[in-house]
Design a binder for these strands. Structure first.
Lengths: 337, 337
DNA sequence: TTGAAAGCGATACCAC
DNA sequence: GTGGTATCGCTTTCAA
């Protein structure tokens, strides 16, 4: 357990000043080719690697971004971790994970700020107005991912967000189901107060309204697999059961299809049309032919990273990015190649 | 974008020395109740939070653990992130994510070490002997998660590992299939050279051998969903198809069942017994009744955390932890409650 | 118990 | 281009 080699030691071996060592490892600093070679040689023999923490202390940039999530059961979120982490790594940034329930947001935020992160991506927890203020005060940009700020009295001016066009997505689904000629259309909500759920439902019912059609029935699944299963049982228990259902996300849609097929012996999509929302890998919907509104993780993460970079440089560009989404029919099993 | 408040500023407001502030925020330091109160009051009004980076610089403990993974499609791994992160957070540690392909292990490791992490958990990439040495030399404990060190000439003395009892698991599966009276038993391998695959297969074939039974057929799926689908097509294309298959992990087992049911119109488990291996959430195997060998993520992560703590304190306790696993029959959809 | 002072390992600014 | 020096925010002796 020996201590790591320091720039000072390298300097001594290379017969140069510590500053020279520092410059050698700083992109675009002015060092002569000669000293540069000497330093690199010495560094190599000593196994020197600059201490990122010490550097952060003086540069005031940790190159660390905090990612806050709650539970990762929904396959959409692991994908977010993967893509975000990859994209940030390319630019020399790294993701520090924070798993937290909604109620501990306060404590978690304190921890986060202690690490002097350069930015925060909140992908699962809401941020109270007070906490957003704390971050703004500390000069740390916060990006809400897949959710928008609490629609309180005053709009939060200091919190950005990246969402997909949930409203339009909801509209697409309703149009599709009407086109297919469905008469008894149901909706299975996620978390009642989440912005994603609200917008998707708003778009969905708007189109139904415009067509003069009533919603057949409605239940709540809290974005949970098990609760969605139960909700499905309730929705389809009646004699006059729905012939189509829009489920607020793919994770729940899969749960619903399980119940419909295995418990209730209904055929999907022949007996019931099921439409989901999100972007989950094929491994998740493998055995179903799922119709879904896709919000591209790739695009959303890309937007997030762009926002982060601009805000970390102090820019105050556009704040609420809405990524378009599209209706997709997914095949369960690919044809053999 | 104002700079964070420092201990110095708090000290001035509280009319004490900076040292006093430091002590107040250090567990078990000697501070009088009086100054302690003054400091806390001042800290509160200024919104002071100690700078973790500066602290790490002097204490030589970052309280950061690096977690290295490659792809997160397999539902087993998100669960690892979640559990590991939660358990570490409880003790004041945090997870810094590194997504990496096998071939960039070198570059990634350099980045990792720059962050002065207190430990490294490698859950997806292999670690070369040279890299392991580098870490050992730097005094950073490395835990291989769900894989064991390259079985080179000399056993790696400085790399610990946490795995499940893959060999016994493989044996269990073979025993089960023999018990069920299967005659044409196939094996679908994961990554040929991975320790998990090797051990599972070794245990599996050992029991078949002991029973004097030949393996019917064998294919390779590389732990990938798509390649497992293709492998399934190959395995079951023959007239004399298998009546049972042991798939090296759940992720691939699900892919196989998709192909069997949807493409080949075979019933599982009536026509073919499929057995998997791992620990994935219900959302992953939702629509199947999956027989699988469960390696508990919870247990494995627990063991990992224990190992980390003991090694971070310089202890050199037991190094290769093997977590027991068990055979489980999972029901696809729960009965209504 | 307390405060002054010496680092931790690096960068930034400064004359040279 | 180069080396000296102050500094980043904190913990840690060490006297008092």
């Amino acid at each position: 357990m020996k201590s790591a080699t320091t720039a000072h030691e390298v300097a001594r071996l290379a017969q140069v000043s510590q500053s020279a060592v520092s410059r050698t490892f700083t992109a675009g600093a002015s060092v002569s080719e000669e000293t540069r070679t000497k330093v690199l040689a010495a560094a190599k023999t000593l196994g020197y690697r600059p201490n990122a923490l010490a550097r952060s202390l003086i540069t005031r940039r940790s190159h660390i971004v905090a990612l806050v999530m709650s539970y990762l059961e929904n396959q959409f979120y692991p994908l977010v971790i993967e893509k975000l982490s990859q994209q940030l790594q390319k630019q020399g940034y790294h993701v520090l994970m924070f798993i937290s329930e909604m109620d501990e947001a306060d404590a978690v935020l304190t921890e986060i700020l202690q690490y002097q992160v350069d930015g925060i991506v909140m992908a699962s927890t809401m941020l109270s107005s007070a906490l957003a203020d704390t971050c703004a005060h500390a000069g740390v940009p916060v990006i809400l991912f897949n959710r928008i700020a609490d629609t309180g009295e005053h709009t939060r001016a200091d919190t950005s967000s990246v969402t997909s066009d949930n409203y339009s997505g909801g509209r697409m689904v309703a149009s599709l189901l009407l086109e297919r000629g469905h008469q008894r259309i149901a909706f299975l909500a996620g978390l009642e107060n989440s912005s994603t759920n609200l917008e998707r439902e708003r778009g969905f019912t708007a189109v139904l309204d415009e067509a003069g059609q009533q919603l057949h029935s409605r239940a709540v699944g809290h974005y949970s697999f098990e609760r969605a299963q139960q909700a499905a049982r309730t929705l389809f228990a009646t004699r006059d059961r729905p012939d189509a259902v829009f489920v607020a996300n793919d994770h729940m849609a899969i749960a619903v299809m399980d119940v419909l097929r295995l418990e209730l012996k209904l055929r999907v999509p022949e007996d019931v049309s099921v439409v989901g929302f999100d972007d989950v890998p094929q491994a998740a919907w493998g055995s179903y032919s799922l119709t879904t509104v896709v919000q591209s993780v790739e695009d959303m993460v890309g937007a997030t990273v762009d926002l982060l970079y601009s805000q970390m440089q102090g820019e105050t560009g556009p704040r609420n990015v809405v990524v378009p989404c599209r209706l997709v029919e997914r095949l369960s099993v690919r044809a053999a190649t």
